[in-house]
């Protein structure tokens, strides 16, 4: 093999990689796209179902209502069923995550790592997607997930941002730009959760003036407690404006008074 043949062979070998690698601008655009497609300019209310399964154990299930006002980073998760859990809820406001139990009538501070209702889900699974704001992304490779071609990216949390997981690996659908899979890693690099987003829906938002995408189904697999899995279903959404004073302790308390 002479030098020219060698160079040509090497070029042909690496050509597909070079050709398919995304530029940083494209990566940033994908991440912003993931956020933007899910963003609703106004308020957000959804009815969710959460189910946690563990081998040989009784399932934990909840019906809950999520209230969001993304302009203020405010969030409420209010459990409405089963009866024993009804009225309990989380309120996130100004970087505080509060938990309220109407049986005690007291509020407790919780951290960003709180497992919502003791399941494998956390606050960020229900909140506005702020990936571009919270993480720096880099391209890793192209991949396929079942019948879908995907771009794979590494995301590292920006300095000073309090997130549940400092590092993510994310697969996005090449065609729609929707997130398909997400691996969440601890600071040590240990894989903590793998989350799949197999169903996406879009609905028109008056306040945004365009469609808002939301994952109809989220599947969370615990990588530490193997076998533990949580499914979140977003069953209904409502983009109408919520009452002004809703994101207060007083409002949540009033729901079970």
């Amino acid at each position: 093999m002479n030098f020219r043949t060698f160079i040509t062979t090497m070029a042909l070998m690496f050509l597909p990689v070079v050709a398919s690698a995304l530029t940083q601008a494209e990566v940033d655009a994908i991440i912003k796209g993931v956020d933007e497609r899910q963003r609703n300019s106004g308020d957000w209310k959804s009815q969710v179902y959460i189910e946690q399964k563990e081998t040989d154990k009784t399932d934990v299930v909840y019906d809950a209502v999520i209230y969001r006002r993304d302009a203020n980073d405010a969030l409420i998760i209010l459990f409405v069923a089963p009866k024993a859990e009804a009225g309990k809820g989380y309120l996130r406001i100004d970087n505080n995550l509060w938990f309220y139990d109407p049986r005690v009538g007291k509020w407790e501070r919780r951290t960003e790592r709180e497992r919502i209702g003791g399941t494998g889900s956390n606050r960020q699974d229900f909140d506005e997607s702020r990936l571009a704001e919270e993480y720096d992304a880099t391209f890793v490779k192209e991949d396929t997930l079942g019948k879908y071609a995907a771009n794979v990216m590494d995301l590292k949390a920006k300095a000073g941002v309090d997130v549940a997981y400092p590092s993510l690996k994310m697969w996005t659908d090449k065609v729609t730009g929707n997130m398909l899979k997400r691996q969440e890693l601890a600071a040590s690099g240990k894989l903590m959760r793998t989350t799949f987003y197999p169903k996406w829906k879009k609905a028109f938002s008056q306040s945004k003036g365009s469609d808002v995408w939301y994952p109809e189904e989220i599947r969370v697999f615990d990588e530490i407690e193997k076998g533990n899995r949580t499914t979140v279903l977003i069953r209904q959404v409502d983009f109408n404006t919520l009452p002004t004073n809703i994101f207060t302790k007083a409002w949540l308390e009033s729901k079970s008074r």
């Binding site: 209310k45 009815q47 209502v65 209010l78 409405v80 997930l145 079942g146 019948k147 879908y148 659908d173 729609t176 929707n178 398909l180 899979k181 793998t194 799949f196 197999p198 169903k199 996406w200 829906k201 879009k202 609905a203 028109f204 938002s205 808002v212 939301y214 109809e216 599947r219 697999f221 209904q236 959404v237 409502d238 983009f239 109408n240 729901k255």
Partner: peptide
């Protein structure tokens, strides 16, 4: 998970509808 969720029979995108609902009784 990958086969079950993203296999041939999977359907990634569907139309939804945003409307007022009874949040709770």
């Amino acid at each position: 998970a990958e086969d079950a969720l993203f296999g041939e029979e999977s359907d990634l995108v569907a139309a939804g509808e945003a409307k007022a609902f009874e949040g709770m009784k």
